[in-house]
Design a protein around this nucleic acid. Structure first.
Length: 271
DNA sequence: ACATTGACCTGGGAGC
DNA sequence: TGCTCCCAGGTCAATG
């Protein structure tokens, strides 16, 4: 589930239930995620409060007086607010219990997610320090992206999915943004003109903004936690639409593999 | 410095 | 029904 819009939506969904609530206990059921969950947070977080939750890239940063909890949802992670009586499932690995009986539960079947702890500036953490700009910030501009592209002859799709170039552009939204910008996903990054980068920066921002808005309206119910898939799906032009007709020109959309990721594009609209 | 590939895990669906 | 194979929204580490 989680690309940047889903992470942003998760942040907004859980914040009202957890920020400034006293923590009573932390339960680690299965610490084996991408990296082991540090056991130290059990004692450290007890009686603390999460003062704020912010997002950097696809990481959620939970600030406390003693340090930051760093969360990543990986491929299949979910954070939900649940009641005491909700049964514990096979893939429920981690929980924070609050004084008002609320529970924040982390579920992740594939266990590619991460739960880490850092005492210093979270932005300087090894995983965050070298990340590129946020796609919705002003730092992510035509000038920036064009300049960075000059040294790279990898496919443009791989280029915009590189978190050191820009964060938060995953497989779905990379395909969508390239379609809207009319750029072939395999075109070399340094073979794209500044004019087309201008378009691409616009469409990346556009697609992510629209998806965040859609997420905001359909993933509203974090209380009971049924994350319905299909929020942004009405707006998908190419992702998951291989062999179907292009919405713009009627051609048959093509499926290729690019760095072992499925990639759908319109051979006529995207050059 | 840049580019490519494998690896981490589990579940679901297609095809036989 | 059950087996095998392939696919899945991410991204780090190792290698060329």
């Amino acid at each position: 589930m989680p690309e940047l819009p889903e992470v942003e939506t998760t942040k907004n969904g859980i914040s009202p239930y957890v920020v400034n609530k006293p923590i009573t206990k932390v339960i680690i059921r299965n610490p084996q995620l991408r990296w082991p969950i540090p056991q130290v947070i059990k004692k450290t977080l007890a009686k603390q409060r999460i003062e704020s939750i912010t997002r950097r890239s696809k990481y959620l940063l939970c600030q406390t007086t003693k340090g930051h909890l760093i969360l990543h949802l990986g491929m299949s992670g979910r954070l939900q607010i649940v009641d005491q009586d909700k049964p514990v499932g096979k893939h429920d690995h981690f929980e924070i219990h609050f004084h008002d009986q609320t529970i924040l539960r982390f579920t992740d079947p594939r266990r590619f997610g991460a739960i880490l702890w850092t005492q210093g500036d979270p932005q300087q953490h090894q995983l965050l320090a070298k990340l590129g700009p946020e796609p919705l910030s002003e730092d992510f501009s035509t000038e920036y992206l064009f300049e960075r592209s000059r040294k790279h002859r990898i496919a443009i799709k791989s280029f915009i999915m590189d978190a050191q170039i820009v964060v938060g552009v995953g497989n779905i939204y990379a395909q969508e943004a390239l379609f809207l910008a009319g750029i072939h996903p395999k075109r070399a990054a340094n073979q794209v003109s500044v004019t087309r980068y201008q378009q691409l920066v616009i469409t990346i921002k556009q697609v992510l903004t629209a998806a965040i808005e859609a997420g905001g309206t359909t993933l509203r119910d974090f209380r009971w936690g049924e994350n319905k898939p299909g929020y942004f799906q009405q707006q998908l032009n190419v992702y998951g639409r291989a062999d179907q007709t292009c919405i713009q020109c009627g051609s048959i959309l093509k499926l290729i593999r690019l760095n072992q990721r499925s990639t759908v594009y319109c051979p006529k609209c995207q050059r």
